[in-house]
Write a protein that binds this DNA or RNA. Structure first.
Lengths: 196, 196
DNA sequence: CTTTTATTTAACAATTTTGTTAAACAAAAT
DNA sequence: ATTTTGTTTAACAAAATTGTTAAATAAAAG
């Protein structure tokens, strides 16, 4: 079976990903996606049958990629602190490129159906939570419900990037200055999470 | 001029607010809004002329209310720590009722135009940032760029509530257990923000 | 009681968005 | 060179969504 593979399929998928997750245009039409990709709108149906299926494809791929990288960090044979540093870097990189990915997931659960989050495996997270608990016994971390530790980590990483457009206005800072601030986040977050 | 004032206008506005900000249905149609409010769709046009104008009305009102309450906290004649506690309570209450409000703002800036965030006054925030700086000199707070302090505060408050549906799945916890966790956030956040 | 005015509704029209069909095109296989 | 197969496109159809008009309803004013 000779596939010509003109790259159009991935082009459409990557373009949709950019519009949805990077630019936050959650209700981009098929026409807008096709235009941004520079292809005819019919190609979109040729490869994905419908708008919803394109959306699903983009979504599953992105979530799988991210949760894969995160699980890799969490399950690695490294000291706890190193794992956290890895997680911060992976997550920060992803959130910088695609700040609206998780927001999108959460607000689209109604539309797309819960199967999207149902097949997110809870096991790697649970193992990691156990490890967090151990660190609390060691005194490396404040003794709180381990879930709070993870929520704190994700919050400190994600929220500033989601709110970037608002913060630039609110704090009257340039795009450059904002990037600088984000560059400082890793150290700030580490200091907040670990009791020195 | 005798206004009958049947309450329909506010009913529509409150219903739209609920759908948009509480349930996260950012692209609810006029029909869905009308149905949820139990009125004819034409009433929606009668009071607001178009979908966009309804959206704008809902938006401006919500943002004004929230920023008003926040400015009140920040400008109050109270000790710094008390102000932060007030802010946490105000914000936590608002985010619990309407978790998607800020997300909505940020992702709709493209569509609704930047005038929505342009008339958010930066002054109260700037005054407060100065105060934060003073606290850092006093040693009450870790010495970092003051903007980080505020980003940390807002992140720790908002993100867990935005991600609630995802977290309940990821951490395998009930709605009740999740509410309990949120109830513990104030103390957790205070501990993280202040160097004891 | 009648008139006026605000509100609500049904019916219709216009626009936008999605989806389908069939034809045109281009590269590989025979 | 011709056939086959995969890809792209234009034209068309269907559905969903918004917006308008005019009639029906009901409450207040005269």
């Amino acid at each position: 079976m000779p596939l010509k593979n003109t790259g159009t399929e991935t082009l459409i998928k990557e373009t949709a990903k950019r519009l949805f997750f990077a630019e936050g245009k959650l209700h981009a039409t098929t026409q807008e996606i096709a235009d941004a990709a520079g292809v005819n709108r019919t190609s979109l149906h040729y490869y994905f049958r419908s708008r919803d299926l394109l959306l699903e494809a983009v979504f599953k791929e992105a979530m799988q990629a991210l949760s894969g990288r995160m699980n890799e960090c969490m399950a690695a044979e490294k000291p706890f602190r190193q794992k956290i540093e890895d997680l911060i870097e992976v997550f920060l990189k992803d959130m910088t490129a695609f700040p609206y990915q998780e927001t999108f997931l959460v607000t689209e659960i109604n539309t797309l159906g819960k199967e999207l989050i149902e097949n997110i495996k809870a096991e790697p997270i649970n193992n990691f939570l156990t490890e967090v608990k151990e660190e609390m016994h060691n005194g490396t971390l404040e003794k709180i419900e381990p879930i709070h530790f993870l929520m704190n980590l994700f919050s400190l990483l994600s929220y500033p990037l989601i709110m970037a457009p608002l913060y630039r206005q609110l704090f009257q800072i340039s795009e450059k200055k904002f990037s600088e601030l984000i560059g400082q986040r890793k150290e700030i977050i580490l200091k907040m999470l670990f009791t020195e």
